[in-house]
């Protein structure tokens, strides 16, 4: 599902974000990426989301070679991914429900099914009472849960979540991690970056990747 070999990412200003990263993630795996701030966790996730492209090395996600000149293929690939952004990236001026539905409208799903799936996703993240609330009026934690609902409602092959529990209290954080872990049953792979290593439940863990200084320094199988 995800294969990285000797991947490097160097930004325009010369900063080396990732250096010689090798990675292998299979279908239905629950993977945590941990490490201190600035270690390269988010950069790694950006590569997997095709926000950035490797400056060297080879990276394949869901069979797609990650290269900037494959625009249409990358667009198709992104439709198979459920991204949860650290800064949520919700669409302002729209309700929680509209935000979740918006992520599915171009996925060839019947309009009634879109509504149904969006509703169920919001119920799963505990926001059944906030369906029509405008996202500007939601707390950070609620916004984060809308972002997670948007990702899981798409029924993606791969979920890429950048600090998905960063703004949640412990109970909600555990619930969300439990919810993401349950997607394994549908052969969905979940890749999560987090600081909150104390919340990681070994029972739901397939792989723990530690990143430091742009290098994968430790990979532990769960």
């Amino acid at each position: 599902m995800i294969e990285a070999q000797g991947v490097c990412l160097k930004y325009g200003d010369g900063t080396v974000a990732l250096n010689d990263v090798d990675l292998q993630i299979d279908y239905g795996e629950m993977v945590y990426i941990t490490g201190p701030s600035g270690s390269g966790k988010t950069s790694l996730l950006k590569l997997l989301m095709a926000v950035e492209y490797p400056t060297s090395g080879s990276l394949r996600v869901l069979g797609q070679c990650m290269k900037p000149n494959h625009e249409i293929d990358i667009q198709r690939l992104r439709r198979r991914i459920g991204p949860v952004f650290q800064e949520f990236k919700l669409i302002k001026g729209r309700s929680a429900m509209e935000n979740v539905m918006l992520g599915m409208r171009f996925l060839d799903i019947h309009p009634n099914k879109i509504k149904e799936d969006a509703y169920h996703a919001l119920v799963k993240v505990g926001l059944a009472h906030k369906l029509s609330a405008s996202v500007e009026n939601l707390s950070w934690g609620e916004s984060q849960r809308v972002a997670i609902a948007r990702a899981i409602a798409r029924k993606p092959a791969l979920i890429l979540a950048d600090e998905p529990t960063g703004n949640l209290d412990t109970d909600n954080a555990l619930n969300i991690l439990e919810l993401l872990a349950s997607l394994k049953d549908e052969q969905t792979s979940v890749v999560i970056t987090t600081h909150a290593t104390h919340l990681i439940d070994d029972r739901n863990l397939d792989k723990l990747i530690q990143v430091d200084g742009g290098r994968v320094c430790c990979e532990r199988l769960g």
Partner: peptide
């Protein structure tokens, strides 16, 4: 532009 960028990241045509 933020909305457009988000939609692109979600794979919208």
């Amino acid at each position: 532009r933020e909305q457009i960028n988000t939609l692109r990241l979600l794979g919208a045509p």
